[in-house]
Amino acid sequence: MSVNATLDREREPAPRRRASLDFVHEVQQFLYREARLLDEQRYDDWFELMTEDFTYWVPVPQSRYRRDKKPTYEPGRMAHFDDTLTELKLRASRWKEKTAWSEDPPTRNVHYVTNIEIAPAEGAQDWLVRSVAISLRTRNEDEENWLGGRREDLIRETPDGLKLVRRWVFLTQTVLLSKNFNTFI
């Protein structure tokens, strides 16, 4: 496994399809809009972009020696998120309560999405979309937190437009360098 490869799996299927320039544009706009919904904390609208069986996994990386047989990211370890859509909605429902004191005034949030790569995935309507996402959060007077990682999304073409089927986010921070992680990425 190469260093910093996100997971030791993926022997990708040979590319039978190729994303058209139009489709690349569509995916890009989809990801940008999705990021804006998170910035604006419009979680209900954000959840509309997922399929019912959406899963969201953000593992906690471990800093290990190169010779170590165990990888940096591993399923089954403690994770920041390892959720179904229902569970994500439960988390987000808290932020809507008037009593979410620590979110009032709200955190200012900008999600930055870049390095988008699109490859065909197993399902005929599915695409493996890689990107890099960086979240900049600012709170109160002087609290500023950067958190970034590499994302691997499974995105499906449906009659209702593009939908996220699965998202994995491989963060770079082993120690989360802030008091919380009060957004999705």
Partner: peptide
């Protein structure tokens, strides 16, 4: 202990 742990920094 379950496998893995979570670390974070708090300015307190």
């Amino acid at each position: 202990f379950l496998d893995g742990n979570v670390k974070s920094r708090l300015r307190c």
